[in-house]
């Protein structure tokens, strides 16, 4: 994306974000308090985040590849299972990928 397109993206996403937040404050609570709406919102959040994990870890353009990012994600999963804080998880994953690449793999 060009810098101009990125600015448009940043500003449109910001506008949409504020619009959603304000709409939540303005519309009657019972419209959104249904179980189906709450459940769908939770599931959409899960699907988006999981899909982003997959794209960030396995996609190289339109190719699905296995490189240093995959063992790095495994390291992150182990850290999360051990209840490590966010920054520790991220730094360990980065260090694992950087280490593997320094050794000439991925």
């Amino acid at each position: 994306m060009t810098t101009t397109m990125l600015w448009i993206t940043v500003l449109l996403a910001s506008l949409a974000s504020f619009g959603l937040k304000l709409a939540g404050h303005l519309i009657p609570e019972h419209w959104l308090a249904t179980q189906r709406v709450q459940r769908t919102s939770t599931l959409v959040t899960v699907a988006l985040l999981v899909s982003l994990v997959v794209v960030q870890t396995f996609a190289d353009g339109a190719l699905v590849v296995v490189d240093a990012r995959v063992p790095a994600l495994a390291v992150a999963a182990v850290a999360l299972a051990l209840r490590a804080p966010f920054i520790v998880v991220v730094v360990l994953a980065a260090a694992a990928a950087a280490g593997l690449r320094a050794l000439g793999w991925g």
Binding site: L49, R69, V89, V90, A98, R101
Partner: peptide, 25 residues
């Protein structure tokens, strides 16, 4: 070289992790 591309995947995994407790999720 710093592994920052792998850090992005780890960040998303950390965000979704607490939301994966339910079977449906």
């Amino acid at each position: 070289a710093w592994g920052l591309d792998a850090a992005a995947g780890a960040a998303f995994l950390a965000l979704v992790w607490p939301r994966l407790a339910e079977r449906r999720a």
